[in-house]
Deep mutational scan, measured.
Amino acid sequence: MATGGRRGAAAAPLLVAVAALLLGAAGHLYPGEVCPGMDIRNNLTRLHELENCSVIEGHLQILLMFKTRPEDFRDLSFPKLIMITDYLLLFRVYGLESLKDLFPNLTVIRGSRLFFNYALVIFEMVHLKELGLYNLMNITRGSVRIEKNNELCYLATIDWSRILDSVEDNYIVLNKDDNEECGDICPGTAKGKTNCPATVINGQFVERCWTHSHCQKVCPTICKSHGCTAEGLCCHSECLGNCSQPDDPTKCVACRNFYLDGRCVETCPPPYYHFQDWRCVNFSFCQDLHHKCKNSRRQGCHQYVIHNNKCIPECPSGYTMNSSNLLCTPCLGPCPKVCHLLEGEKTIDSVTSAQELRGCTVINGSLIINIRGGNNLAAELEANLGLIEEISGYLKIRRSYALVSLSFFRKLRLIRGETLEIGNYSFYALDNQNLRQLWDWSKHNLTITQGKLFFHYNPKLCLSEIHKMEEVSGTKGRQERNDIALKTNGDQASCENELLKFSYIRTSFDKI
């Protein structure tokens, strides 16, 4: 039985969820670079991206490699990797027998973001014989899940209580170790020597080791999670996991709180800001991140802002960003909400898709409305799209047979046209069989910064309504002859009103 693990408890099935942008060198404390989270699957090609990484700022997932063999891993080693800020997950990587050479110096898994409450997941690794993470000293947050690894031993010899604050939620089941077939031998045991430290858990006094050649490092209890030197002297209180010299914040392997210019500090002093819960960055760093993602459509890219001495992905609820200094300031009234469309555009074809934009005031991208039916549609669209004030790209209304009016965009005031449909149009209306009105132009103002209007096959939309939009939106004169079809717009509506004058002759039985 794995020490510190839980057996036999019912657990939810383990679901495996399925960018080499360097964020800056980590400095003297770390020998390499800070790398983003990685999802490495199918083959070993991307694994080489770990070569210079000291910190993975995010998670590391290595999974679904069915053609790899043990010899493929023999020359692979990433000794610079010290810390993973989120979680480490391995799933069905064939041929991998140990992690001792792959990650010989991995010391800390912070667990800032977890995989279903777990910071370390080893699942269905069919050839893994031992973990071998002999320098792993601290899992700051989260638990361990090690399950269905039929060859995995050296679990009962690990004292997880020396690595985690609590072992109650560890789930370590259905491994070879369960069948008591392992016969784990710690260093020196074969020669009758006791080389590794022994600890007591559940009444068992057991030597602690990761492999037959690597003991588990056990520091004096007084050192807590700070770690200790090879001689057993406690590291500085700002260290986490390990250090090369005692009581020196510049000799830590990793930091308990924050890293700044080669030393570990309790908090980031001005003019620095907390970033990702582990390091200090200056304003320029946060500003660069903001600008890199301002026009990016890459998933996970955030326009970072500053709030409460932190550089964070977005302002919290009730705050909006001051564009001059990136500071989050309290909103006066309802907060603006910028919604970034991942692929640059979004099609609204149902109430469900409209709900995804609920509360958005600025759309960074283009909207395509293609709704053919739905219950209580006008009210639903207004509830979900009615706060949109600005669209950076274009607005396209296409084959939306259920629409009679666009009044559900009740606050839309600006279409920038930074991206144009077919390279020309910022407003595009095609084949809307029941569209009769755009907006009530006596109450609604709309500016279209650039781009043209396109109207074709809107049989109940009168040309007068379209011409009014040209005047109000500032697009009059931009359109070419064929942009607004004269014969297919309003051709099934009563669009022309003329005053009919009647004269009559009164007659009676005795007068003409």
Rank of each mutant, 00 (worst) to 15 (best):
Y118K: 05
D177S: 06
C182W: 03
D277N: 13
H290R: 03
C335W: 03
K80S: 10
D288I: 04
L60Q: 00
S284H: 08
I109P: 00
L63I: 02
G241P: 02
M38Y: 10
F78M: 09
W278P: 01
L128K: 00
K310I: 06
F283E: 12
Q61F: 08
L174T: 14
F115K: 03
G132F: 00
L260F: 10
L76C: 07
I122N: 01
L152F: 01
C239W: 00
W210C: 03
K251I: 00
G32F: 09
R113P: 04
L332S: 03
L99F: 13
C196E: 12
F205G: 13
Y118R: 03
N179F: 09
N195V: 12
C219K: 02
R256S: 10
I222S: 04
F275A: 03
L155D: 04
C196S: 07
Y30R: 03
C53T: 00
W160N: 01
N170Q: 07
G32E: 13
Y272S: 15
M137E: 04
D277R: 07
E168L: 14
V93L: 13
V121P: 01
N52G: 09
K292C: 12
N295S: 08
P271Y: 12
D177A: 15
C280A: 00
P330I: 14
C293D: 02
G318A: 07
N179P: 05
N282D: 13
S77V: 08
S213N: 09
G300V: 12
K129Y: 05
A230Q: 14
P36W: 14
N43E: 10
C234V: 01
K176S: 06
S317R: 00
C255D: 00
P271N: 08
S54G: 00
N42E: 08
E33T: 07
S225T: 12
L88C: 00
T85A: 05
D169N: 03
Y94G: 02
N170I: 06
T189Q: 08
N43M: 08
S323L: 11
S166H: 02
P249C: 03
C209Q: 01
I84P: 00
K193N: 10
C186A: 05
N242Q: 12
H290P: 10
S143I: 04
I62F: 12
V218Y: 06
N43A: 07
F103S: 00
D39G: 02
Y134N: 04
N175Y: 04
G232L: 03
L164F: 00
H59F: 03
G142A: 02
I82H: 06
A119R: 00
N202C: 05
R113L: 08
L240F: 04
H48L: 11
C209P: 02
C243M: 00
Q276A: 06
L106R: 01
S225V: 06
L90A: 07
I146F: 11
C264Q: 01
V55P: 00
V265F: 05
C311S: 02
G142K: 01
H307S: 09
V218E: 13
T250C: 07
E97H: 10
Q61T: 07
F123G: 04
D277Q: 12
V305I: 07
G232F: 03
C286R: 01
C252K: 01
D75S: 12
H127L: 14
D261S: 09
T229A: 12
L120Y: 00
Q216F: 05
L106S: 00
K191F: 15
L332T: 03
K191H: 03
D261N: 10
I163D: 00
T140G: 06
R256K: 08
K310C: 05
C153L: 02
P336D: 12
T250W: 10
V218W: 12
D75P: 03
C234N: 01
C255Q: 00
E57Y: 10
E147H: 05
Q245P: 04
K148P: 01
V265L: 11
T229K: 11
V121D: 00
T250R: 08
Q287A: 01
G318S: 10
Q276F: 14
P269I: 15
C223R: 01
V108P: 00
S77N: 06
K294P: 12
F78R: 02
E130C: 03
L76E: 03
L50F: 10
E151Q: 15
R263Q: 10
I222E: 11
P269V: 06
G241L: 02
G111S: 03
R46S: 14
A198Q: 02
R141W: 06
S317P: 03
I146N: 00
C228P: 02
R145Y: 07
D247P: 02
D261K: 12
L99V: 08
L120H: 00
S296L: 12
P330W: 07
V206I: 03
Y319Q: 04
F116P: 01
N325L: 08
C153W: 04
L155V: 15
D75G: 03
N308R: 11
P79V: 05
V206L: 11
E314S: 05
N105W: 02
Y118F: 09
F285L: 12
G32T: 04
F91V: 07
K148D: 06
I84G: 01
T329V: 06
K193G: 08
N175S: 05
T211S: 04
V144W: 00
P271M: 12
R145F: 04
E124A: 06
R162S: 05
N170V: 09
R263V: 11
P249N: 11
G192C: 12
I201C: 14
P197W: 10
Q61V: 12
F285S: 11
Q245N: 09
R256G: 02
I222F: 12
L120T: 02
E71A: 14
D75H: 03
N43Q: 08
L50M: 11
E168G: 03
E180R: 08
V253L: 09
R145D: 03
P334R: 15
S237M: 05
F66L: 12
T194V: 03
R263M: 11
S225P: 14
A119C: 03
F103M: 12
C331K: 07
T211N: 07
C280P: 00
I146C: 04
E314R: 12
L81D: 00
V265R: 14
N195A: 12
W210I: 12
C196F: 15
P246Y: 03
R162P: 11
R298S: 11
E231S: 06
E124Q: 09
G232Q: 08
D169L: 11
G37K: 03
M38H: 11
L131G: 01
C331M: 02
L96S: 01
T68N: 02
R145N: 10
D169M: 13
R162M: 13
R263H: 06
C335E: 07
P36E: 04
C53L: 00
Y319L: 13
I306V: 13
F115T: 13
I222P: 13
S143N: 10
K100P: 02
R92A: 11
C239I: 00
K224W: 03
G300P: 13
L128H: 01
C280E: 00
K80G: 14
G132R: 01
N43T: 05
K191M: 08
D261Y: 08
K193I: 04
N309Q: 14
L47V: 01
V93F: 11
C228T: 01
G32H: 04
T194N: 13
H48Q: 14
V55M: 13
S213T: 14
V144N: 02
T68M: 03
G142Q: 01
Y134G: 13
P330F: 12
T140S: 08
L164A: 12
C215V: 11
S237C: 14
F66V: 11
C228W: 01
R41P: 01
E124Y: 13
D177F: 13
K310A: 11
G262D: 14
R74W: 13
N135V: 01
I56F: 00
V55S: 02
T68H: 12
W210G: 03
